[in-house]
Design a protein around this nucleic acid. Structure first.
Lengths: 214, 214, 214, 214
DNA sequence: AATGAATGAGCATTCATTCAT
DNA sequence: CATGAATGAATGCTCATTCAT
């Protein structure tokens, strides 16, 4: 039996351990969610214990999603809130930062590319709402910072962020096919390798932002 | 027992019937592939019969994907091969045509948004290669037309097409969440309704192409 | 792979085999339903095959219940429809027949004594309604025969049958405790052995019918 | 942390609180036993604390059973020991009293109708024996009172009581099915509503006792 | 005495594909 | 060619009880 986590901080450590184990398993896996048993074993805990910290398996991964995207939105704020610096430099810094972050957090786009409703279907409505609200809050704030920094009409920043995200996700999916890849554009000759993805994303985002702010 | 299809044309009709039934079921469904039983029943055939025309269930849907995207690439060619017309008009015509086509073929983005490898995992390598080759051929040709029409360096047209596609797919996924939606950017207040998706796509593509060709 | 049951009668045989295996397992078991795996194995079929014949595990046992009780109601009809014979003889014949039948079909009272809703909870509403309707039809007919034979007001026969059944089930439950038995009246000295149950039931029913028709 | 119960009376109060909470939960529930967690929470105690007062969860409910049935047997004694009053009046008084008591203690028949062995399986042999002995003592005494009052042969009173109980339990089970109910006799048209149960019981017991003492 | 974190066994059901008829 | 019966692997979650604190 694993040591008991009585103090609040110990519990948080347990939770973090589960999240970490889940992330590792997912990143090493084939694209689907690992099983609850696997997560428990990798956390060094019994299955039941995992369910003391998360209501469903999917909730674990929703947490990873949240944990991973919040820093991105935080970066948006700190970059665009800076009083000095050129507009184009800020944009470039954001794009660079995003690309780097996605490089270091492969689970983010992988989770976002799970089949439709994979996470949603097995979360309690309450947990789902909580995550959405937290996410939205950050997103709106980040969008607002862009609005101000670039003197855009209200809501435009969020719109651009969402299109940025769409592009990142869409491109990523095109890059995920192994030598068996099928999807549109995924011809042997045209396939994006995972490595090429980052450069591709950088370019595509640069193009998009250039067009959006033209 | 359904009538036997002896003549070649009868067989093609059978195949078309299966494809049509599969498309309808998928479009009406919840985002996952219908079961082989459902496809068979909707086709008015027995399960075993379906497997006389397709090697796996996934092959059926790969066919739908091919059938749906080829006309898009055909449209690229006819639009950009036209000797007259302004460059910006051609681009706009392409975007409009794409948006319309996607509106009329909801299965395309839905299929592209299935979980990772859903189709690939269950296709025979031969079938997979055949589809990829056919697809790539069309894509390269369409890209080449853009290269020439817009005086771009070779390969640039394909690149833009793939980014166009990525944006379409990424945005579409952001619009697919019902009131339970979770994924990034999917806040109650920010959710794209399916209807709004088409307008959103039009705008985003316009921005992207503007930036790409700036 | 078990031989394929293509003809209707072969399918009925399969179904009967499953029912028979399920009954045996249940009668030998500890009072709970056997697992679906056990039923399949005992039937000499794969798990999936069992589900070709029954929608849920519980439906199997609902069928056993129906199969077991219908003959009882049939016996009521044939006994009480007979034009000759004394009233008291008919009643005695019914009681004897019921006791014998329950002796030969231990699954009946065992199934009726499962916890609340065990069967109902896992049946499709359609299957549930179908069983109820069939059951009710037989019961009303049997009750009607009693009404006529004994010159009772309409509905009285059904009422007596239901009370008869209640007594049988209630007594049976008192007899089911092993040396660990707890329930009311189940003191070591007072415990009904399974064997004694039949005699106890005979007496109790005789008393009840005497009082009911006094 | 709840106050520590050091004095004997405090401990008894704790025990009573647990029993009361368990009864309420069970009566409000769906027919199954509440979880140990629920009982603890409703008692305002921690899970572990509950286990300081009862060895198993089932023991709690066995106590409720005992608490509920003892007064019935006490009533038998006081009614049948009375020197005056007519025999038929006493019987009627007993039946009325029983019906009223069951009306006020819905947990009694509900607990008795749990699946086979639900309580027994999870009690320590010692606890089980203790309950059985106490119960049997009361039952024998009550039965003896009936023997004397009605001039029956020894043991006949207990027998009638057990059959009375069997009828009550059997009828009750027939009344417990909601609109989904399946069990024998549970046809939509014939279903006993919970309300009708009490009247049904009164009538059926009257018939039974009439027949038993004829 | 009181707490509550940790444990881990147990199980129904779906569905793509095959191949005997 | 057409049929459809048979197959069987794969997995999340609950909850009574214990015992370290």
């Amino acid at each position: 039996m694993a040591q008991r986590a009585l103090a609040t901080e110990d519990k948080q450590a347990r939770q973090a351990a589960i999240l970490s184990a889940a992330r590792d398993l997912f990143n090493e896996g084939d694209g689907g969610l690992p099983t609850a048993s696997q997560v428990a074993a990798a956390s060094g805990l019994a299955k039941g214990t995992v369910y003391l910290y998360f209501q469903t398996k999917e909730e674990i991964f929703a947490n990873l999603l949240l944990e991973g995207w919040i820093p991105v939105m935080g970066a948006v704020e700190s970059i665009f809130r800076a009083t000095k610096g050129r507009r184009s430099d800020k944009i470039q810094a954001f794009i660079e930062g995003l690309v780097d972050h996605l490089d270091g957090h492969p689970e983010l786009l992988r989770l976002d590319s799970l089949g439709p409703g994979v996470l949603e279907k097995n979360m309690t409505p309450e947990a789902l709402r909580a995550y959405k609200l937290e996410f939205t809050g950050h997103l709106l704030q980040a969008g607002g910072c862009i609005d101000k920094a670039l003197h855009l009409e209200e809501g435009r920043g969020v719109q651009i962020l969402m299109r940025t995200y769409a592009l990142a996700r869409g491109l990523w999916q095109s890059a995920q096919h192994d030598e068996q890849g099928l999807s549109v554009g995924v011809a042997p000759a045209l396939m994006l390798t995972p490595d090429a993805y980052l450069e591709e994303l950088r370019e595509a985002l640069t193009e998009y932002w250039r067009g959006a702010l033209a």
